[in-house]
Simulated assay, not measured.
Amino acid sequence: MSTPQQSELRVAVVGAGRMGSDHVDRLAHHTLRSRVSAVVDVDRERAAAVAATAGDAAGEPQVFSSVDELLTAEAADAVVLATPGFLHEEALLKLLDAGIPALCEKPLTPDPDSALRVVEAEVAAGRQLIQVGFMRRFDAGYRRLKDAIASGELGELLMLHHQHRNPEAPAEFTDEMIIHDSVVHEFDAVRYFTGEEITDVSVRIGRTTSRTGNVRDPQLVTVQTESGLLATVEIFVNAQIGYQVHTQATFENGLVKIGEGSEVEVTTAGRTGVTVDAGFVTRFRDAYDLEVQQWVDATLRGEIAGPSAWDGYATAACCAAGVAAQQSRTVERVALAPKPSFYAAATGSPALA
């Protein structure tokens, strides 16, 4: 386990798939004061292949096929958890029991009941050890909008409008996954921007694209916060145009738009246009880099630097309400357990430096 006196953090990456391998590369080659000490995956050969990309003068990371093996070997001070969400609860409970800090990719867990169990276990442990990977909070545009809201320079924030578009969804993508895999980010964004909990969710489905399988697409999600602020989300996972995440904030005295910073406008041969990102990894690359760097630095100080386990639980509760709203076509209330005083801040946020 890390101590404030450490100058380098030994990090194990659990899960050697797309996100896990991306984090291994980031930690090994772009993050200061960290070293990839282990890679864990049920597919040991895949873990070994990913570990080989992170070798340095000290050698290659150790390879394990389970969290239990990792903990027995005492091979890490902290963990980046990048396995599928249904595996998170078991791993997080073991890490909490061992006192190991974790950066857990979203979701904390796939449902509010299991997420609440993780929250209760962390409260019982007596220290915040879990940070949830809502990387958008570390995006430069998100941070500027958060600052504009906090400053009050444009008056009171009245409404938020989000557009979330993917080029295409896998054939197995479902209506429920639209909420759990995509709109979950907007649920967290609304909570981040407002500092409030979401109280209700509704989903409307109208005309649908011909390029769809098991999912009705696009969908319009509306949420309301404790103070009455409304936010909309246009979620379109088969948009064909690339990956876009835009937000417009309506204030009493103006508008703020974010999400176009990574697009480059080119004029040539009598035409002007922009290149749209191919996916979330390129769109939010800088945000991921900052998220992991600040998590490493905070962990060395014995802290977390972003969304907490409570934030993970609250978004899981929003997702449950969202899926219910898809089915009922009515407004669904978000059911939240009482918030433990252990979580002092309403929504964990990165530093705005």
Rank of each mutant, 00 (worst) to 15 (best):
D111Y: 11
T212K: 13
V42P: 06
M1A: 14
V264M: 02
E69A: 07
A351S: 07
L300Y: 00
V221A: 12
S114M: 04
I130G: 01
T222F: 09
S262F: 00
F284W: 14
A52F: 08
G133C: 07
I258V: 15
A314C: 11
E156D: 10
Q240Y: 10
V245W: 03
D147S: 15
T209Q: 03
W310Y: 11
A344I: 09
G206Q: 06
E69C: 07
A317G: 11
H185R: 09
V11Q: 03
R44A: 12
Q327H: 05
E196A: 10
S151Y: 04
P110C: 05
R117M: 07
V237S: 06
T199N: 09
V292L: 04
A335M: 07
T208Q: 09
D289N: 14
T272V: 13
A150L: 12
Y313F: 15
Q131V: 09
E8Y: 13
A269F: 14
D188C: 08
Q6W: 04
K94G: 02
G206N: 12
G228N: 07
E105H: 07
M1L: 10
S202C: 00
L220T: 12
P84F: 08
T225Q: 06
V221C: 09
R10E: 12
R137L: 01
E291V: 05
P340E: 12
V67S: 00
Q248H: 01
I179Y: 04
E153D: 13
A115D: 09
D56F: 11
T330C: 02
T315R: 04
F342Y: 07
S66V: 07
H29I: 06
V14M: 07
Q294L: 10
A189E: 00
D22Y: 10
R26S: 04
G206E: 06
I178D: 03
Q293S: 08
V233W: 11
S210L: 08
D68H: 09
A321I: 05
H246M: 13
V79S: 06
V266M: 07
E172H: 01
Q128S: 06
R26P: 00
G59R: 11
T275S: 04
K94A: 15
D41P: 03
L145H: 03
L129G: 06
M177C: 05
A12N: 05
E197M: 05
A28C: 04
E332G: 02
G133H: 04
V50P: 00
D200M: 07
R10P: 02
R165C: 09
V237I: 15
A249K: 00
E332C: 02
H23I: 14
T315C: 00
E226T: 11
Y313R: 07
T225S: 10
P218S: 06
E45Q: 14
K146F: 05
L300K: 08
F187Y: 13
A239M: 01
F134R: 10
A75I: 02
V223S: 01
M1Q: 06
E196W: 09
R144M: 01
A102R: 03
R136D: 07
R46L: 11
R165K: 12
V331S: 13
A249E: 05
L157S: 13
A345V: 14
L93V: 13
A73G: 08
T208D: 01
G254W: 05
L336G: 11
H29N: 10
E176C: 12
